[in-house]
Amino acid sequence: MTIAGSIVLIMLGAVLTWAVEFTVAGVDIQVIGVILMLGGLAGLLFGLYRMNAVRRATPVVPVDEATTRRVYEERRYDDPI
């Protein structure tokens, strides 16, 4: 789940919990809203953890002038206009 998807779930759950006064027989809309908010919060925390883990796992390789190979490209524009 992406971070944006988690935020959408949190917003949808908040709307269902506090803004909707619709009743369905056998279903509590407020409880569904709380469940969606908790699921969105869990997805948000997991997404942030995963993003932080990827940033830490990326190695930083120092650039060494002796081992770096540079390629220069020359172009001639002799074609008539």
Score class of each variant (00 low, 15 high):
65 E>P: 14
41 L>Y: 01
60 V>K: 10
52 N>P: 02
36 L>K: 02
22 F>Q: 11
50 R>H: 11
23 T>C: 00
32 I>P: 04
33 G>N: 09
73 E>S: 06
50 R>M: 11
35 I>C: 10
41 L>P: 08
12 L>Q: 09
52 N>C: 01
35 I>D: 07
69 R>T: 12
26 G>L: 09
77 Y>K: 00
43 G>P: 02
26 G>D: 14
38 L>W: 01
60 V>C: 03
47 G>W: 13
20 V>S: 15
38 L>F: 05
11 M>N: 12
67 T>S: 13
76 R>D: 15
41 L>R: 02
79 D>C: 00
20 V>C: 12
11 M>Y: 10
9 L>N: 15
62 P>Q: 05
15 V>F: 06
34 V>C: 02
20 V>Q: 07
39 G>I: 00
27 V>C: 01
77 Y>H: 09
17 T>F: 14
60 V>N: 08
70 R>Q: 13
13 G>I: 05
56 R>T: 07
45 L>D: 02
40 G>M: 01
78 D>F: 00
47 G>F: 12
66 A>W: 06
5 G>D: 14
53 A>C: 04
67 T>D: 06
76 R>W: 15
15 V>S: 07
17 T>H: 09
36 L>M: 09
64 D>H: 08
11 M>A: 14
79 D>W: 12
62 P>C: 02
78 D>V: 08
42 A>D: 02
70 R>F: 09
52 N>A: 09
41 L>E: 04
56 R>K: 14
46 F>C: 05
74 E>T: 10
65 E>D: 10
27 V>A: 02
75 R>T: 15
57 A>I: 06
53 A>V: 10
55 R>P: 00
75 R>I: 15
49 Y>F: 15
78 D>P: 02
19 A>V: 10
70 R>L: 12
68 T>G: 05
19 A>I: 03
5 G>N: 10
16 L>S: 07
37 M>Y: 03
63 V>E: 10
46 F>N: 12
75 R>P: 14
77 Y>Q: 05
45 L>E: 03
10 I>A: 05
48 L>S: 01
54 V>M: 12
37 M>C: 12
10 I>S: 04
37 M>T: 10
39 G>A: 13
51 M>L: 13
21 E>K: 08
37 M>D: 08
64 D>Q: 08
8 V>K: 01
9 L>M: 13
7 I>C: 09
56 R>V: 05
58 T>N: 15
35 I>G: 11
42 A>I: 06
53 A>T: 08
